Simulated scan of single mutants.
Amino acid sequence: MQLFVEVVDAGGFAKAGERVSLTRSAVGKAIARLEERLGVQLFQRTTRTQCLTEDGQQYYERCLRAIDELRAGETMLENGRREVVGKLRVTLPVLFGRYRVAPILRAYARQHPNLELELNFSDRQVDLIAEGFDLAVRNGRLGNGSTLRARQLVSQRKVLCASQAYLERRGEPHTLADLTDHDLLPYWRNDHGLAWKLPDTKGALVDVLVTSRLRFDDLEVIADAAAEGMGLAWLPYWLIRDRMQQGSLVEIWGDRPKAAMECYVVWPAAQYQPLRSRLAIDVLVCELEKYPQD
């Protein structure tokens, strides 16, 4: 049953095999044996894809309900003994995850020696359900998908900054239009730079589309480049606080309103949630509130 669900969720035999460490052939044979036992065809097969038949769709929906019931039973037993056990898989943004979240979850794992903790660091938006993650920490706006639930963790203030040497050489911008005369250091992903939310002269925050000859997909590299005088950067304050205190970076427009990037913990919207996940969420909310953001 579980392998069948993996095939459907992964979208094919080969991808399901990668998840469970089986060959495509082994997965196909297992599904064939299941179809023979049930006496129905679950997949309509072509040379490239496997699509659910009507019987397969009905069986898939019943399998999901059965798995939910099994999870509910496990949760009930786990809650009854109040012991954190099992595997917790979490996906995290690289820098915020490494510096802010990972220390909290490592302490959580030390506190519960029967917990298996797996942390995956990636700035891409991972599909929790398809890739089998229990929790994700995400920066920025969340979508309106009904398959996930979320709690806000913290709000990260972002600042426009540059090195003093750059500002002496190029001058300080005074308006959004002035940015076109400056070298900019955007965070670059999926073939475009993410917009900066900056204040105009009246204090209203505006989304500014950023282009540049310099394109980095790592915030720490952007901070390094800004400190080396290569341009203006828009970065979370917690990341550059030490550089600003040391003088290698200077805040621009410090007297104007600033945008904040919200951070959330999200999880699949299942009816039941294991104790290990619920407690991890509570710990993250509690501990991240202690970090100064300004």
Rank of each mutant, 00 (worst) to 15 (best):
V7Y: 15
D9Q: 15
G11Q: 07
T23W: 11
R24M: 04
A26P: 03
K29H: 12
L34V: 08
V40L: 12
Q41M: 05
Q41S: 13
F43L: 15
Q50R: 10
E54W: 05
D55S: 06
G56V: 11
R65L: 03
G73N: 08
M76G: 06
M76V: 10
R82W: 00
V84Y: 13
V84L: 12
R89C: 00
V90Y: 02
G97W: 02
R100P: 06
V101E: 01
A107K: 04
H112D: 11
P113L: 06
Q125A: 12
E131V: 07
G140T: 02
T147K: 09
A150P: 06
A162N: 00
S163C: 08
H174V: 11
T175K: 01
D178L: 00
P186N: 10
Y187Q: 04
G193C: 14
A195Q: 13
W196P: 03
V206E: 09
L209D: 06
V210A: 10
D217V: 05
A227F: 06
G229R: 06
M230W: 10
M230N: 10
L232I: 15
L235I: 09
L239A: 12
D242I: 09
R243L: 02
I252N: 00
W253I: 07
V265E: 03
V266N: 00
A270K: 05
Q273V: 14
K290F: 13
